[in-house]
Design a protein around this nucleic acid. Structure first.
Lengths: 230, 230
DNA sequence: AATTGTTATTTTGGATCCAAAGTAGATATC
DNA sequence: GATATCTACTTTGGATCCAAAATAACAATT
């Protein structure tokens, strides 16, 4: 039993995310089974899961193929997350935050302040940020009064580029990443501010904008460094 | 081959939607297989699909149980659809509509006008409305530039109460349903108006409000009929 | 009497076998 | 030469068998 099935799912998820298969490539059950060293059964089960996650598509009446993603798909997936997290934030602002939740959010906010306090970013800080960022988002989404929103976000996050913690990649340019995280921190603090004051619309819009930080802010943050054309 | 697998999935989906199983009831593979008259294999495949759809949940390390839905879940699922359809509408307004799409939407709008022109609702009108309503929504969501939004909506719609065409139920009170459809028609027309003028924010909000028509408008439409307390 | 350890039963995961459906290729006929 | 039909091969769906894991029940010991 164990999680051999989950393992096949996650192994395939990883392979697809890494681009081990061509976009649109047809995946045969036997071929994948041999490649992973298991029988057809767990592969068949995994295909159904991955189909629902959106990583595979049915190829006509026979088999599955690797889902193809365009630039527009990536942007859309990020906007979807923004819309859903924004919805969660608005609901949370409208229903009011418990003091426990307020404290929890403040805790992770403070972690962020501490991280950025030293004025620059180091390698090991990346994981710390990823951790606190995840907790921040999960606390908001998880407190929206229903797991439905969180489920929708989780399904969307199966698209490898849509997840909230896929912000950090470039550990070569730590100074640029530092400024990005500074901005993200400000956005986090503003969201909490709006939530505390019950400002639903503002919380929603801030959260939605915050989702775009991984996409649209790169060139902005390079202004004054490399190309001052921005 | 055929769609025996799909059949098991949809049969189970139907059974769950009808409440054939208790909320939170554990489903064993053998029991369900016997009940449906198939072997364990298609049931195992179906469980994975239904888990991703959110109708089943993993029960610890062993088996699945029927997902429990609260009132808050229902409201949230509808709001999620509103948020996603709103996102699609805003994107569509911002990118501009093709003349073909405009014509298509106008066509279904006109169908709605025709349906409501005679001043009352009949039994067979329900299916006609369901058809045009579906086309209206699918055209907007399908033209948002990426299938990601549509996929997210489709996954959300697997929750039996969240789908857009679950508006109509009460064929006993056709006069109330008529007024509801009148309102829906106006909302459809306003959405198209906003889309044509490139009013993204307005299109988004109209679409979002439109999603709530099945939930929050019942008492409103009863005003002046049964209980004038609204 | 309570707790722990062992055993038995239940249930799921994985592998293999068979059947059915689809696709492709070849042959025959027009 | 083109098209249509038939056949062979590929691939997936369903059933069954076996193994492993988890739960439950029972017994033994403290």
């Amino acid at each position: 039993m164990s999680d051999s099935d989950t393992s096949v799912v996650s192994r395939l998820r990883k392979l697809i995310g890494e681009g081990a298969f061509r976009q649109g490539e047809r995946l045969g059950e036997v071929a994948v089974a041999e490649q992973l060293g298991v029988s057809r059964t767990p592969v068949r089960l995994a295909f159904r899961t991955l189909e629902q996650e959106g990583l595979l598509q049915r190829a006509g009446k026979r088999g599955f193929r690797v889902r193809e993603f365009t630039e527009a798909d990536v942007l859309c997936a990020v906007e979807v997350r923004g819309a859903l997290e924004g919805l969660a934030a608005r609901r949370l602002a409208e229903q009011g935050m418990s003091s426990a939740l307020t404290a929890e959010l403040e805790f992770w906010i403070q972690k962020g302040r501490d991280l950025l306090a030293k004025g620059h970013l180091e390698e090991q800080d990346v994981e710390v940020w990823s951790e606190l960022n995840r907790h921040f988002h999960e606390n908001i989404v998880g407190s929206a009064g229903s797991s439905v929103i969180g489920d929708a976000i989780a399904r969307n996050n199966h698209l490898p580029f849509a997840a909230a913690d896929s912000i950090i990649i470039d550990s070569e340019a730590l100074d640029r990443e530092y400024r990005k995280l500074q901005l993200a921190q400000v956005q986090h603090e503003l969201v909490v501010q709006a939530l505390r004051h019950g400002e639903g619309a503002r919380a929603e819009m801030l959260m939605r904008e915050h989702a775009l930080i991984g996409l649209r802010y790169a060139e902005l943050l390079d202004v004054g460094r490399h190309s001052p054309s921005g």
